[in-house]
Design a protein around this nucleic acid. Structure first.
Lengths: 113, 113
DNA sequence: TCACTATTTCCAAATTCATGGAAATAGAGG
DNA sequence: CCTCTATTTCCATGAATTTGGAAATAGTGA
Protein backbone atom coordinates (compact mmCIF):
# COMPACT_ATOMS: atom_id res chain seq x y z
CA UNK A 1 0.00 0.00 0.00
CA UNK A 2 1.24 3.45 -0.84
CA UNK A 3 1.63 6.09 1.81
CA UNK A 4 -0.62 8.50 -0.04
CA UNK A 5 -3.48 6.03 -0.15
CA UNK A 6 -3.14 5.03 3.49
CA UNK A 7 -2.99 8.65 4.55
CA UNK A 8 -6.07 9.53 2.50
CA UNK A 9 -7.97 6.67 4.13
CA UNK A 10 -6.83 7.69 7.60
CA UNK A 11 -7.75 11.29 6.89
CA UNK A 12 -11.21 10.16 5.82
CA UNK A 13 -11.66 8.30 9.10
CA UNK A 14 -10.09 11.11 11.09
CA UNK A 15 -13.29 13.09 11.38
CA UNK A 16 -15.80 12.22 14.09
CA UNK A 17 -18.79 12.42 11.75
CA UNK A 18 -17.20 10.22 9.12
CA UNK A 19 -15.88 7.75 11.66
CA UNK A 20 -19.42 7.41 12.96
CA UNK A 21 -20.73 6.85 9.45
CA UNK A 22 -18.05 4.30 8.77
CA UNK A 23 -18.68 2.39 11.96
CA UNK A 24 -22.37 2.33 11.19
CA UNK A 25 -21.52 0.68 7.87
CA UNK A 26 -19.05 -1.71 9.48
CA UNK A 27 -21.76 -2.80 11.89
CA UNK A 28 -24.26 -3.19 9.07
CA UNK A 29 -22.06 -5.78 7.35
CA UNK A 30 -22.82 -7.07 3.86
CA UNK A 31 -26.36 -5.71 3.91
CA UNK A 32 -25.03 -2.18 4.02
CA UNK A 33 -27.18 0.86 4.63
CA UNK A 34 -28.98 3.27 2.32
CA UNK A 35 -27.72 6.86 2.40
CA UNK A 36 -31.13 7.85 3.71
CA UNK A 37 -30.91 5.31 6.51
CA UNK A 38 -27.59 6.75 7.60
CA UNK A 39 -29.09 10.21 7.42
CA UNK A 40 -31.98 9.16 9.66
CA UNK A 41 -29.68 7.49 12.16
CA UNK A 42 -27.30 10.43 12.43
CA UNK A 43 -29.76 13.26 11.79
CA UNK A 44 -27.80 15.49 9.45
CA UNK A 45 -28.57 17.40 6.25
CA UNK A 46 -28.42 15.26 3.11
CA UNK A 47 -25.91 17.60 1.56
CA UNK A 48 -23.48 17.34 4.44
CA UNK A 49 -23.82 13.57 4.56
CA UNK A 50 -23.19 13.32 0.84
CA UNK A 51 -19.95 15.27 1.15
CA UNK A 52 -18.74 13.02 3.94
CA UNK A 53 -19.80 9.86 2.13
CA UNK A 54 -17.77 10.87 -0.89
CA UNK A 55 -14.70 11.33 1.29
CA UNK A 56 -15.11 7.73 2.42
CA UNK A 57 -15.74 6.43 -1.09
CA UNK A 58 -12.84 8.22 -2.81
CA UNK A 59 -10.07 6.40 -0.91
CA UNK A 60 -11.93 3.10 -1.28
CA UNK A 61 -13.18 2.63 2.27
CA UNK A 62 -16.82 2.51 1.23
CA UNK A 63 -18.63 1.33 -1.89
CA UNK A 64 -22.05 2.25 -3.22
CA UNK A 65 -24.54 0.20 -5.18
CA UNK A 66 -27.70 1.62 -6.61
CA UNK A 67 -31.00 -0.13 -5.90
CA UNK A 68 -33.66 1.78 -7.77
CA UNK A 69 -33.64 5.31 -6.32
CA UNK A 70 -31.72 4.46 -3.20
CA UNK A 71 -27.97 4.03 -2.89
CA UNK A 72 -26.75 1.24 -0.65
CA UNK A 73 -23.43 1.96 1.07
CA UNK A 74 -21.12 -0.73 2.35
CA UNK A 75 -17.82 -0.74 4.20
CA UNK A 76 -15.16 -2.20 1.91
CA UNK A 77 -13.44 -4.63 4.27
CA UNK A 78 -10.34 -5.40 2.18
CA UNK A 79 -9.44 -1.71 2.36
CA UNK A 80 -9.72 -1.71 6.15
CA UNK A 81 -7.67 -4.90 6.39
CA UNK A 82 -4.96 -3.45 4.18
CA UNK A 83 -4.93 -0.21 6.15
CA UNK A 84 -4.57 -2.02 9.45
CA UNK A 85 -1.78 -4.06 7.95
CA UNK A 86 -0.06 -0.91 6.78
CA UNK A 87 -0.09 0.47 10.30
CA UNK A 88 1.36 -2.61 11.94
CA UNK A 89 3.46 -4.22 9.22
CA UNK A 90 6.77 -2.47 9.75
CA UNK A 91 6.56 -2.51 13.51
CA UNK A 92 10.07 -2.32 14.93
CA UNK A 93 11.73 -3.30 11.66
CA UNK A 94 14.77 -1.24 12.61
CA UNK A 95 14.75 -1.84 16.35
CA UNK A 96 13.61 -4.03 19.18
CA UNK A 97 9.93 -4.65 19.80
CA UNK A 98 8.51 -3.58 23.14
CA UNK A 99 7.22 -6.34 25.45
CA UNK A 100 3.60 -6.15 24.28
CA UNK A 101 3.83 -4.92 20.72
CA UNK A 102 1.13 -5.21 18.12
CA UNK A 103 2.99 -8.21 16.73
CA UNK A 104 1.66 -10.31 19.58
CA UNK A 105 -1.92 -9.69 18.50
CA UNK A 106 -2.37 -10.73 14.89
CA UNK A 107 -1.39 -14.08 13.48
CA UNK A 108 0.62 -12.88 10.50
CA UNK A 109 0.14 -9.15 10.40
CA UNK A 110 3.84 -8.60 9.82
CA UNK A 111 4.63 -11.54 7.58
CA UNK A 112 6.04 -9.12 4.99
CA UNK A 113 8.93 -7.88 7.14
CA UNK B 1 -12.16 3.71 23.29
CA UNK B 2 -14.18 6.81 22.68
CA UNK B 3 -15.02 7.95 19.19
CA UNK B 4 -13.47 11.35 19.76
CA UNK B 5 -10.12 9.88 20.76
CA UNK B 6 -10.04 7.41 17.88
CA UNK B 7 -10.95 10.12 15.42
CA UNK B 8 -8.25 12.44 16.77
CA UNK B 9 -5.68 9.67 16.39
CA UNK B 10 -6.83 8.86 12.88
CA UNK B 11 -6.78 12.53 11.97
CA UNK B 12 -3.21 12.76 13.23
CA UNK B 13 -2.19 9.85 11.01
CA UNK B 14 -4.25 11.16 8.13
CA UNK B 15 -1.56 13.47 6.85
CA UNK B 16 1.20 12.11 4.62
CA UNK B 17 3.97 13.91 6.51
CA UNK B 18 2.79 12.75 9.91
CA UNK B 19 2.15 9.21 8.68
CA UNK B 20 5.75 9.15 7.46
CA UNK B 21 6.99 10.41 10.81
CA UNK B 22 4.89 7.88 12.65
CA UNK B 23 6.08 4.97 10.53
CA UNK B 24 9.66 6.06 11.06
CA UNK B 25 9.04 5.81 14.80
CA UNK B 26 7.24 2.49 14.46
CA UNK B 27 10.24 1.12 12.59
CA UNK B 28 12.61 2.51 15.20
CA UNK B 29 10.97 0.47 17.96
CA UNK B 30 11.81 0.99 21.62
CA UNK B 31 14.97 2.94 20.83
CA UNK B 32 12.91 5.70 19.32
CA UNK B 33 14.37 8.61 17.38
CA UNK B 34 15.46 12.10 18.37
CA UNK B 35 13.47 14.94 16.84
CA UNK B 36 16.64 16.01 15.07
CA UNK B 37 17.12 12.53 13.63
CA UNK B 38 13.61 12.61 12.19
CA UNK B 39 14.32 16.04 10.81
CA UNK B 40 17.46 14.80 9.08
CA UNK B 41 15.70 11.78 7.63
CA UNK B 42 12.75 13.73 6.27
CA UNK B 43 14.49 17.01 5.54
CA UNK B 44 11.99 19.53 6.81
CA UNK B 45 12.19 22.73 8.86
CA UNK B 46 12.36 22.14 12.61
CA UNK B 47 9.33 24.31 13.15
CA UNK B 48 7.14 22.32 10.78
CA UNK B 49 8.29 19.04 12.26
CA UNK B 50 7.58 20.26 15.76
CA UNK B 51 4.01 21.14 14.82
CA UNK B 52 3.45 17.71 13.33
CA UNK B 53 5.08 15.93 16.23
CA UNK B 54 2.75 17.65 18.66
CA UNK B 55 -0.25 16.48 16.66
CA UNK B 56 0.99 12.92 17.11
CA UNK B 57 1.72 13.38 20.81
CA UNK B 58 -1.59 15.05 21.75
CA UNK B 59 -3.79 12.04 20.95
CA UNK B 60 -1.28 9.70 22.58
CA UNK B 61 0.22 8.07 19.50
CA UNK B 62 3.76 9.19 20.29
CA UNK B 63 5.62 9.89 23.52
CA UNK B 64 8.69 12.01 24.17
CA UNK B 65 11.47 11.60 26.67
CA UNK B 66 14.16 14.13 27.21
CA UNK B 67 17.79 13.03 27.16
CA UNK B 68 19.89 16.10 27.89
CA UNK B 69 19.16 18.56 25.13
CA UNK B 70 17.62 16.08 22.74
CA UNK B 71 14.08 14.75 22.81
CA UNK B 72 13.60 11.08 22.02
CA UNK B 73 10.30 10.26 20.34
CA UNK B 74 8.71 6.83 20.42
CA UNK B 75 5.58 5.32 18.92
CA UNK B 76 3.22 4.41 21.75
CA UNK B 77 2.20 0.90 20.73
CA UNK B 78 -0.75 0.40 23.09
CA UNK B 79 -2.43 3.36 21.42
CA UNK B 80 -1.96 1.83 17.99
CA UNK B 81 -3.24 -1.53 19.18
CA UNK B 82 -6.33 0.07 20.72
CA UNK B 83 -6.97 2.08 17.58
CA UNK B 84 -6.74 -0.97 15.36
CA UNK B 85 -9.08 -2.77 17.72
CA UNK B 86 -11.53 0.10 17.53
CA UNK B 87 -11.60 -0.16 13.76
CA UNK B 88 -12.23 -3.87 13.63
CA UNK B 89 -14.09 -4.64 16.86
CA UNK B 90 -17.67 -4.02 15.81
CA UNK B 91 -17.24 -5.57 12.42
CA UNK B 92 -20.65 -6.78 11.20
CA UNK B 93 -22.25 -6.65 14.65
CA UNK B 94 -25.62 -5.90 13.06
CA UNK B 95 -25.27 -8.00 9.92
CA UNK B 96 -23.55 -10.88 8.26
CA UNK B 97 -19.81 -10.87 7.81
CA UNK B 98 -18.49 -11.08 4.27
CA UNK B 99 -16.51 -14.20 3.29
CA UNK B 100 -13.08 -12.71 4.02
CA UNK B 101 -13.70 -10.15 6.72
CA UNK B 102 -11.10 -8.73 9.04
CA UNK B 103 -12.29 -11.14 11.69
CA UNK B 104 -10.47 -13.95 9.93
CA UNK B 105 -7.10 -12.21 10.34
CA UNK B 106 -6.42 -11.51 13.98
CA UNK B 107 -6.61 -14.07 16.75
CA UNK B 108 -8.93 -12.19 19.06
CA UNK B 109 -9.27 -8.75 17.60
CA UNK B 110 -13.05 -8.84 18.16
CA UNK B 111 -13.22 -10.68 21.44
CA UNK B 112 -15.39 -7.89 22.86
CA UNK B 113 -18.31 -8.46 20.47
C1' DT C 1 27.05 33.84 33.21
C1' DC C 2 28.08 32.95 28.41
C1' DA C 3 27.95 30.11 24.54
C1' DC C 4 26.21 26.31 22.23
C1' DT C 5 22.87 22.79 20.58
C1' DA C 6 18.18 21.06 20.36
C1' DT C 7 13.67 22.08 20.13
C1' DT C 8 9.54 24.71 20.79
C1' DT C 9 6.45 28.70 20.53
C1' DC C 10 4.93 32.93 18.21
C1' DC C 11 3.13 34.82 14.30
C1' DA C 12 1.23 35.17 9.78
C1' DA C 13 -0.21 33.63 4.92
C1' DA C 14 -2.02 30.29 1.91
C1' DT C 15 -4.64 26.43 1.54
C1' DT C 16 -7.97 23.11 2.60
C1' DC C 17 -12.05 21.45 5.20
C1' DA C 18 -16.83 21.36 7.02
C1' DT C 19 -21.34 22.82 6.64
C1' DG C 20 -25.80 23.30 4.57
C1' DG C 21 -29.44 25.68 1.56
C1' DA C 22 -30.89 25.63 -3.11
C1' DA C 23 -30.91 23.71 -7.49
C1' DA C 24 -29.90 19.76 -10.37
C1' DT C 25 -30.02 14.81 -11.44
C1' DA C 26 -31.41 9.73 -11.41
C1' DG C 27 -34.77 6.28 -11.30
C1' DA C 28 -39.67 4.50 -10.74
C1' DG C 29 -44.30 4.64 -11.76
C1' DG C 30 -48.66 6.70 -13.32
C1' DC D 1 -44.39 13.70 -19.79
C1' DC D 2 -45.13 14.61 -14.93
C1' DT D 3 -44.33 13.71 -10.32
C1' DC D 4 -42.38 11.71 -6.51
C1' DT D 5 -38.45 10.12 -3.75
C1' DA D 6 -33.50 9.73 -3.10
C1' DT D 7 -29.34 11.71 -3.60
C1' DT D 8 -25.85 14.63 -5.50
C1' DT D 9 -23.71 18.90 -7.14
C1' DC D 10 -23.28 23.93 -6.92
C1' DC D 11 -22.12 27.61 -4.28
C1' DA D 12 -20.84 30.30 -0.40
C1' DT D 13 -18.88 31.07 4.20
C1' DG D 14 -16.59 30.48 8.46
C1' DA D 15 -13.26 27.58 10.69
C1' DA D 16 -9.25 24.78 10.92
C1' DT D 17 -4.88 23.06 8.96
C1' DT D 18 -0.30 23.43 7.02
C1' DT D 19 3.76 25.75 6.54
C1' DG D 20 7.99 28.03 7.97
C1' DG D 21 10.91 32.16 9.49
C1' DA D 22 12.12 34.46 13.63
C1' DA D 23 12.38 34.61 18.40
C1' DA D 24 12.13 32.19 22.74
C1' DT D 25 13.24 28.35 25.81
C1' DA D 26 15.62 24.17 27.87
C1' DG D 27 19.66 21.81 28.98
C1' DT D 28 24.83 21.28 29.13
C1' DG D 29 29.31 22.56 30.02
C1' DA D 30 33.22 25.95 30.24
Amino acid sequence: MKLEIASAQLEALGNPVRLQIYRLLVRAGVDGLAVGAVQDKLGMPASTLSHHMRKLIEPGLVTQERQATTLICRAHYPAMTALIGYLSDECCADGVCPPASVKTRGSKASAKA
